[in-house]
């Protein structure tokens, strides 16, 4: 039964976006991906939600500026488990262009584990969709593992 549930649950990935100081590029592309008919992620069961507490898949963009760091971490902790993190664009991974700026943290991985990375500057919406699908795989694997360890 639980096995069955863990197969079904990841078919409803709800998406939440965190902007950790991005230049808008990835952010706009995420909004485009999440909301417009051409890409229609709703047919994959995705829903874009406004509250972190409803989210399953978190899309993070931006190089994590100092000022926004605590707020991002707070919001991230408000997301209920199990959650999967997707880094959209290269900034969360390496800082991209902004690396070594005095107010840029760069390695988001230090604070938030990145499960999936979608390189691009910004990635095209199809690539973001690939990222979400990959995140769903990670989520499913995690659910199955979790259930195995419980029993």
């Amino acid at each position: 039964m639980l096995q069955f549930l863990s197969k079904l649950a990841p078919r409803s990935p709800w998406i939440y976006r965190i902007n950790a100081g991005s230049c808008n590029g990835c952010d706009v592309e995420m909004a485009t991906t999440a909301l417009i008919p051409r890409y229609d992620v709703e047919r994959l069961g995705c829903k874009y939600c406004g509250s972190p507490r409803h989210a399953d898949v978190v899309l993070i963009s931006g190089p994590l500026t100092l000022r926004v760091r605590d707020k991002v971490l707070r919001v991230y902790n408000e997301i209920p488990h199990p959650k999967v993190t997707v880094a959209v664009g290269v900034c969360p991974v390496s800082g991209g262009c902004f690396r070594d700026g005095y107010s840029v943290g760069a390695d988001i991985d230090h604070y938030i584990p990145l499960d999936v990375i979608v390189p691009g500057c910004p990635p095209r919406p199809q690539a973001i969709m690939e990222g979400v699908l990959k995140a769903v795989e990670v989520w499913r694997a995690r659910l199955e593992e979790g259930i195995c360890s419980h029993s």
Partner: peptide
């Protein structure tokens, strides 16, 4: 080629 999605484990080997 834009199919660059990978997992966090491959972060540095990409």
């Amino acid at each position: 080629n834009w199919h660059l999605v990978h997992t966090g484990a491959e972060m540095f080997s990409n």
